[in-house]
Design a protein around this nucleic acid. Sequence first.
DNA 1: TATTGTTATACTCTATAACTATA
DNA 2: TATAGTTATAGAGTATAACAATA
Lengths: 159, 159
Amino acid sequence: MSKSVNAGAQRDAAKPTGEIGLGELENHLGYFVRRLQHWIFRDVNAALAAVELDVILYSILETIAANPGTTQIAVAGALGIERARMVGLLDDLQQSGLIVRERSEQDRRAHALGLTPRGRMILKKANVAVAAHEKRVARRLGAGNYRRALTALSQFEMD
Amino acid sequence: MSKSVNAGAQRDAAKPTGEIGLGELENHLGYFVRRLQHWIFRDVNAALAAVELDVILYSILETIAANPGTTQIAVAGALGIERARMVGLLDDLQQSGLIVRERSEQDRRAHALGLTPRGRMILKKANVAVAAHEKRVARRLGAGNYRRALTALSQFEMD
DNA sequence: TATTGTTATACTCTATAACTATA
DNA sequence: TATAGTTATAGAGTATAACAATA
């Protein structure tokens, strides 16, 4: 409960941490994005632990489900994962019996990715857990803020 | 809201970030937060390279500036940095002549942190660079979306 | 006994480079 | 020559544990 030396003077800047102010950071979107990302990361990973996944493995499963037969490079590009790292992540999913890697018939360098029946079952359970997580985010942020944030952020162009 | 499932009609495996759908991910705030955070991180670090800082060192400087005499633990807690890592980061800032660490007179275990004149000068330049970065984010997101995102995300309660 | 700063360790993530087999 | 997948490595970031000085 030890207050900092100069704490207690300003009451206007009490929202981010409650203890000390953050100066210009409170006008920067990046600060709040990072803060929210950190909370979401922990919460969604805790939710996915019930099906022995984390948010990265889940995202890969969901992307494969939406694009059956796609390649490792395509998934890596869509999710911003290095293709070198993708190898080990897909090894995990394959050893867990959730995905299959088959050589593509059109391009024998590439692997065509697909979900196993067990992969589809686990993904369905994962989506239930993630939906509950999204509700927690929405409740904590406020329904209106959640909707506005989703709309606004989804319109960001990466390029 | 469409799920934009491109039911396998196209098989353009050429593009790295090719046009593949993301399934449920497109309904999840966390996906867009992570995406934006990644872009912001790269852009703001590129901007801060001109003053030989990165976004973490900048955030520490700004927090010390807003709370002169505060402690390492308080800054670490405010920014979500482990106190073990804070040691090395403050070493960097001290060796660059931007901050001072003095033993606190109230609690001789603690260090009272402060900016040097050079630290204040560099921070002023950094804030100019970061303001330009914020404008880039706002332009890319759209002014209305930027304002709505900032308002919405700033109301997230961390606990 | 608890806390601040510190050191040390281990594990993960990120970024490269290089190799193979195909194209 | 270029690309998909793979392996290997080095540098950050993160999470712990333990310790000394101080409370």
